[in-house]
């Protein structure tokens, strides 16, 4: 069929490549994958006013991830493309710590990183892509993450302040703030008067009991 002005969409450009985290494929908007078969998906993106190479390097430096990812205790590189991650399961300093191994599946400097867990307490996979912003100012960072978790557990996590989907969104927010400003804004340690029972309940339900990563400070 010959193309006509009605079928051509000159204003919709494909991304230079198509990956799991792509938002536009063949000119069509692609919604994030649906949660099913015990898998949860989250896709989120942010415009960061930094060069893609700088952001790639920051993301790829896995041992520095606890500076901007919530609840992480430590990440240790165990080989080329493999690392061991440990994370707290709640907001208390003495809470249970879970660990897992992770391996990098794709590593294209300045373009994308994909990874998956290869054993341990967590079953997840993810990808981050770095694209030039449409108007050339800054880099669009898109994260797609997939993990397995029961609905009940997800609901419970929401109640105590942070479900894992929201954690992915918050972590990208922290990443952007750290990249753009050199710090992650925090208000949890500001002085205040007596919170009382209701105040403390609100803090928890607003996610304010999840310690904001320090950004390396």
């Amino acid at each position: 069929m010959s193309s006509s002005p009605l079928t051509e969409k000159p204003y919709v450009e494909d991304l230079p490549r198509s990956t799991g985290a792509s938002v536009v494929v063949s000119g069509r908007y692609l919604p994030p994958p649906e949660d099913k078969d015990g898998k949860l998906w989250v896709r989120t993106s942010a415009l960061v006013l930094k060069d893609a190479q700088v952001l790639y390097a920051m993301w790829r430096d896995v041992e520095a991830a606890p500076q901007w990812q919530e609840h992480l205790v430590e990440v240790v590189e165990t080989g080329p493309g493999t690392s061991r991650w440990s994370m707290r399961t709640s907001n208390d300093d003495d809470s249970k710590v879970i660990t897992w191994e992770s391996e990098v599946l794709a590593d294209e400097p300045g373009v994308r990183i994909a990874w998956r867990s290869i054993g341990g307490d967590v079953d997840q996979a993810g990808e981050v892509i770095f694209d030039a912003a449409p108007n050339g100012v800054g880099t669009v960072v898109t994260v797609l993450q997939e993990f397995r978790m029961g609905k009940l557990a997800s609901a419970w996590e929401t109640l105590v302040g942070r479900n894992p989907k929201q954690a992915v969104i918050e972590n990208l927010r922290h990443f952007k703030a750290l990249a753009e400003t050199g710090e992650i804004p925090r208000s949890q340690l500001d002085p205040h008067g007596d919170r009382g029972v209701i105040g403390n309940f609100k803090r928890s339900s607003y996610g304010e009991t999840v310690p904001t990563p320090t950004g390396g400070n």
Binding site: E170, R173, A177, E180, P185, S187, Q188, G207
Partner: peptide, 10 residues
């Protein structure tokens, strides 16, 4: 500003 609200999700 994109970066200064620690509770942006609310």
């Amino acid at each position: 500003c994109d970066n200064t609200n620690p509770n942006a999700h609310l």
